[in-house]
Write a protein that binds this DNA or RNA. Structure first.
Lengths: 223, 223
DNA sequence: CTTCAAATACTTCACTCAGAGTATTCTCCA
DNA sequence: TGGAGAATACTCTGAGTGAAGTATTTGAAG
């Protein structure tokens, strides 16, 4: 996969702005913020100016003119180039058409779940459930009162976020339920592990027991 | 929120390894890979060595001893410190209990959806649907044949991934359906926009029309 | 009329990170 | 026995990234 010349999604947002009309960097920031893009695309000054430099050096945008207002720093107004338009369209198609592997924090946490005792894990998951509920509620209320009044087309990323949060909520709820009803595969082993740990059983003994219960492959799989 | 001394989740994975027993860096890599953690936690050498240096400088791990085998580079074997254990547990609780805002690529793409014409967008979303199906199918087949034979406890992060992919699939399918049946809010506007663009209507005129149809707030909201 | 916060418009810096590159040693097959 | 390739064990580099800092101007309150 031949990587993009500038890989930060913020660059695409910048391209989308200067496609509409030439803008200077700070104007791009405020435009993106007004439109709520900072909820979907990481936006901060450090990255913005780096990205603009990089876009320019790759010929995707170019300085159109400079302005000055009072004693403020000079503004450089950028415009999109034909190469920039091609790149932006191609990038958009890519983002929509190809799922890419991401690394959400929660997945990392789940993958190391055995580190925590079942009791502590349950407490944490219950807390997560509450927080997710609160977020979903806040978001849907906002959409219902429709303080924004925009057509769906301009709010679709927000619907996506809610859909994903709702799915995560369901996943966590089911997981908790399965632990409670003791139908979660490996629960005995998990509890045994932490009982041994609490009892001060030596690490290598625990690892050996675990390996035995897991079957053949030599490696201990504590976490 | 007082940030962690080392923020890369890879650091937590490293802590989980040296908690089990002292290890040297390369051994940590292979252990994590064996256990499939690289599917949930970004793992590469550049980060690994940086993270280990950082963990050491923050007193969360320390060099226990050095080894040498033949003419190979010397290995430094690291062990976890009490501070490291505290940090690891605290971090785990955090990961499980608190949802954090993430910035998936697809959300970025959706937030700039109006850039693409409805026809192109549909094509892309259809492609995504197919790819998602393929991924979900591959993953569930793998789980059914149970080539791994591990209890759920050690595969929970994979179930999570499937749950999220399935939810995304449903979202995309519904979106496509709504576009097809023309019940997607703003579809007329979206089509009109791209017809005007294709007809070569000047950018500022388009922006003005758009602003008019969107109501009061002055900013054009092309993308 | 003054002062103080907020907005404007960036710049700087220390850090992190991903990918590619390097160098040695082991293993296996012919 | 000789050479290809895999495995071992890192090092380097350049490109982000986020947080904080700088300097001016406008607006509102007192």
């Amino acid at each position: 996969m031949p990587k993009r010349p500038v890989s930060n999604p913020l660059a695409l947002a910048v391209l989308s702005c200067v496609w509409e009309r030439p803008m200077y960097p700070y104007e791009i920031t405020t435009t993106l913020r007004e439109r709520g893009k900072q909820d979907s695309i990481r936006l901060n000054f450090g990255s913005l100016y780096a990205v603009i430099r990089s876009l320019e050096s790759h010929g995707l945008i170019r300085a159109a003119r400079t302005e000055r207002e009072g004693n403020r720093p000079e503004r450089i107004v950028y415009e999109i180039t034909p190469a920039g338009m091609t790149e932006a369209l191609d990038w958009m198609r890519d983002l929509l058409a190809r799922p890419v592997k991401e690394y959400p924090d929660f997945e990392a946490g789940l993958s190391l779940l055995p580190m925590l005792s079942p009791q502590v894990a349950r407490k944490c998951l219950e807390e997560r459930l509450e927080r997710l509920d609160a977020e979903i509620r806040a978001r849907t209320e906002l959409e219902e009162t429709s303080a924004l009044g925009l057509p769906e087309l301009f709010l679709i990323e927000s619907s996506y976020r809610v859909a994903m949060q709702t799915a995560e909520r369901a996943f966590v709820a089911e997981l908790l339920d399965r632990i409670e009803r003791r139908t979660f595969g490996g629960l005995d082993l998990w509890e045994g592990l932490h009982e041994a740990l609490a009892a001060g059983t030596p690490r290598n003994e625990i690892a050996a027991q675990l390996a035995a219960r897991l079957g053949e492959e030599g490696g201990s799989t504590l976490a």
